[in-house]
Simulated scan of single mutants.
Amino acid sequence: MSENVHMQAPLQTSGPAPEVAGVVAILIHGRTQSPADMFAIAQRLGTPDLACVAVEAAGNSWYPDKFMAPLASNQPFLDFALERIELLVVQLEECGIARSQIVLIGFSQGACLACEYLYRHPARWGGLIAYTGGLIGPEGTSWLTPGILWGTPVFLGNSDEDVWVPLSRTVETVRVFERMGADVQLAVYPGMGHLVNDEEISLGRALVQSLLNRIS
Rank of each mutant, 00 (worst) to 15 (best):
A9P: 01
V154Q: 08
Y119A: 08
L118V: 14
S168H: 12
P35F: 07
V154K: 09
A21E: 05
M7G: 02
L113W: 07
F107V: 02
S14K: 05
L11I: 11
N60A: 08
Q209V: 11
T132R: 14
V188T: 15
R175I: 00
V53T: 14
M1N: 15
Q12K: 15
Y63S: 04
L149S: 08
M38G: 08
L144N: 14
A114M: 06
W143I: 13
E56S: 12
P76Q: 07
D37Q: 14
L149F: 09
F177Y: 10
A25S: 03
P16Y: 01
I41S: 01
C95W: 12
P64N: 04
T152L: 07
C115Q: 08
A187S: 14
L88H: 12
P35Q: 08
P166M: 00
N197S: 04
L144V: 11
I28Y: 02
H29G: 04
A42M: 07
V20P: 01
W164T: 12
Q91W: 08
M38Y: 10
E200K: 01
G157L: 04
V24K: 00
S108T: 05
F39H: 05
Y189I: 02
P122T: 10
W150D: 15
L71M: 10
S100C: 13
E161K: 12
A206S: 11
G134N: 07
E116Q: 15
I201D: 02
P16L: 01
E93G: 13
V188W: 08
G22L: 03
Q43V: 07
L195P: 00
R120T: 12
L27R: 05
E86R: 02
F177P: 07
L128K: 11
G147R: 12
M7W: 10
A25F: 00
A51H: 06
P18Y: 14
G46P: 03
L118P: 06
L212V: 02
L156E: 05
A81V: 06
P18C: 13
R169G: 04
G181F: 00
S108G: 08
A40G: 11
G126W: 05
D79P: 00
G204K: 00
L45H: 05
M1C: 15
N158E: 04
C52S: 15
G59M: 08
E56R: 10
G15Q: 06
V154F: 10
R205S: 02
M68S: 00
R169F: 05
D79G: 09
S61R: 11
V90H: 13
D160S: 02
R99D: 10
N74K: 12
L50A: 06
G191K: 02
A182I: 07
P16W: 03
P48V: 11
I201Y: 02
T152S: 13
M38H: 04
A81L: 04
D65H: 07
S73E: 15
S142C: 12
L50N: 08
I215W: 13
A58K: 11
V55H: 03
A111I: 03
P48I: 08
Q91I: 03
F67C: 06
Q209K: 13
R120P: 11
T170W: 01
C52F: 10
W125L: 12
L88F: 09
L128T: 09
W62L: 01
G126M: 13
S159C: 01
L207D: 03
V184S: 09
L104H: 05
G134M: 05
D65T: 09
I85F: 06
L211Y: 09
L195T: 15
H6P: 04
L113F: 06
L78V: 09
H121C: 05
Y117Q: 05
E178V: 05
F77R: 14
A36W: 00
T141A: 10
